[in-house]
Amino acid sequence: MELDRRDLLTALAATGAGSTAGCSSTRRQATDGGDVSDHDADTLVALAEVLYPSSVSNVGEFVREYSLERVAADAEYAAGVAEAVGSLDEYVSEWHDVPYAELPTVERGEILRHMTVDTADPDPDGVARERIRYYLVNELLYAFYTTPTGAGLVGLENPPGHPGGTRSYRRGPDS
């Protein structure tokens, strides 16, 4: 199952990053954009490889383009991502000499569980594991499972947040 350009555009639409204006009080604010560093992008890809099903390919391109596009529209989000990546690397540094993005895949999953990111409530203003859950983990999960490819893995080709038209709801599972 390959993530394609359509999924990227879908993910951007679902997050509002495709729009040119922003809510005055929302975190998806279209303020002056910020840069996402190569390291932040590498970390998001490394996380996505753990978070997404193993059958999904083209994860790196999807995440890099998605994150870059999104951050270009939202400086506040960029800062949140960068700070959360820093927190994740800081936690990893207690056991390893490399940042999270350079860990073997199996250890990336273990780190998330050890840090209890898996059970953390997503909270952009919370403690480190809650911010990681919000800015990194849920960001990636939300992007993936609001695409036809992600939700389509469970039989929903037009998930909430995706403007997939008004035909699929009429179709049966075998059509």
């Binding site: 679902a14 997050t15 809510c23 929302t26 919000y134 939300y142």
Partner: peptide
């Protein structure tokens, strides 16, 4: 309300964690 903000308001609804009410 600015209609251009509606996708962002949709995300408030769909994503947990952001405690901002959808319509403020």
């Amino acid at each position: 309300f600015d209609p251009a903000d509606r996708e962002a308001r949709m995300e408030r609804h769909l994503r947990p964690g952001d405690r901002e009410p959808v319509w403020d």
